[in-house]
Write a protein that binds this DNA or RNA. Sequence first.
DNA 1: CCTTCATTCAACCTATTGGTAGAATATGAG
DNA 2: CTCATATTCTACCAATAGGTTGAATGAAGG
Lengths: 98, 98
Amino acid sequence: MLALADPTRRAILQRLGTGEARVTDLAAPFAMSLNAVSKHIRILERAALVQRRRNGREHVLSLNPAPLDEAAAWIESQRQFWNARLDALEAALAEHED
Amino acid sequence: MLALADPTRRAILQRLGTGEARVTDLAAPFAMSLNAVSKHIRILERAALVQRRRNGREHVLSLNPAPLDEAAAWIESQRQFWNARLDALEAALAEHED
DNA sequence: CCTTCATTCAACCTATTGGTAGAATATGAG
DNA sequence: CTCATATTCTACCAATAGGTTGAATGAAGG
């Protein structure tokens, strides 16, 4: 599975970009059960995109600063491909920002 | 759906990076029916990652040089996130290349 | 202790995905 | 015309993903 494929998981990563958070904190914005979010977190953890630190009964999540999972490796392998197209992409996206 | 989520589709994009190709050409390397590959191509096309030009009975596919789909937009939005981590990632991946 | 809070585990359900096979369409070749 | 080639269309199927609920675990607080 590509951990980055799901929009909920991407949102979780984005949230963690602003600082660490507990499972409950991460779940709050979503219209789905805590349980479902817990599952997404586990997937991000398996993909080594996210780290877990246990503080008593709270599980504190943070971004893993050195991702080595398949997704990251793939991004690296595709970086040239995308870089070659990001100029055109940026221009096109700029037009859309009105 | 994230068009980039499937490894077959990523392989197709990679192949198209080396030049345009017909459906049959694209399907050849895969241990799956032509039909399945045709479906993948349609998904890449819907995501505007790939263009189709019809030449008689042959459908010639090529990379779309200006992707504007959700996947591309997401990559752009996440680019900062990844760029901030690509240094560590590159170092880590370099170690793996032995 | 007992209860509350934070989280996971286990079982289950449904929609989607990725694949198949076979028929249909349309172009090209003899 | 007829046949082969290139591709899609139309079911159909099995596995998986993403969600649910309810019970289990385990730490904190009165």
